[in-house]
Design a protein around this nucleic acid. Structure first.
Lengths: 123, 123
DNA sequence: TCATTAGTTCGGGTTTTACGAACTATTGGA
DNA sequence: TCCAATAGTTCGTAAAACCCGAACTAATGA
């Protein structure tokens, strides 16, 4: 089994981060990893925002986050333990990632309330 | 000549913005449009960061920025006058775009100083 | 040893991307 | 009134990225 590649913070790029986080599924995954107190496995995300994500696609998403430098993945037995590289990232990129995730979150909330009010009105 | 499509702020998405700005050339273009006091034409960017950008590629970049909602383009004679949709965007997305552009700028500066110090050492 | 589970890789079809070449539209002269 | 020049767009195509089912590998526990 090939070892997992993690770039050094030095090799991270703004464009890499933005590209990784321009996918709402990946942004959601990162947000949930960050807010977890421990590590999260990949398979914890076979559902994201009520949508099933195929296993192979999920694997690609994790690879994208990892290779952008946003998460660290360690093999623990059969599974992968994923954690966010918070301090390194904010030391180097300041508020970038936090702001991006906050924007995604705000948008999700907006959408939810829009859906709810539509439901309330039976539209 | 087909009219130019501009989404309403309502139709803008975080993912759309991030995708548009995950390209350093587009981020640079937007930054320069924002800092200009007037409007900027497309052809003002046939060179970006000392790299020539083909006309057709440039046209695509402007389309991408426009359709992400980041700029407004108005035909003025032969040329297009491009302005940033600053207030609408920050009203809706807060610090998102500013933070992203600042991160790109910081990275560019980092790279420049790295290059300079390498030159100074004749490496 | 074998079944199970977590994640990866492979193969393909589909979708974006980049860019040269050819195009359209506008304008400012002769 | 033409015509040349200029600004941008569109088209065609080749290369890269993406998505996802199927087949795979590695670790585990019965």
């Amino acid at each position: 089994m090939r070892p997992l590649y993690h770039p050094s913070v030095e090799d991270m790029t703004v464009e890499g981060i933005l590209h990784a986080l321009s996918d709402p599924v990946r942004a959601q995954i990162l947000a949930r990893i960050m807010h977890a107190d421990g590590a999260k496995t990949c398979s914890a995300f076979l559902q994201v925002s009520d949508r099933p994500i195929p296993k192979s696609t999920l694997s690609q998403h994790f690879k994208a986050l990892r290779e952008a430098g946003l998460i660290r993945s360690e093999r623990k037995g059969v599974e992968l333990h994923n954690t966010a590289r918070c301090q390194e990232i904010s030391a180097r990129f300041g508020p970038l990632v936090g702001t991006v995730l906050a924007a995604h979150l705000a948008q999700d909330q907006r959408r939810n309330t829009a859906t709810k009010s539509r439901r309330a009105k039976r539209v």
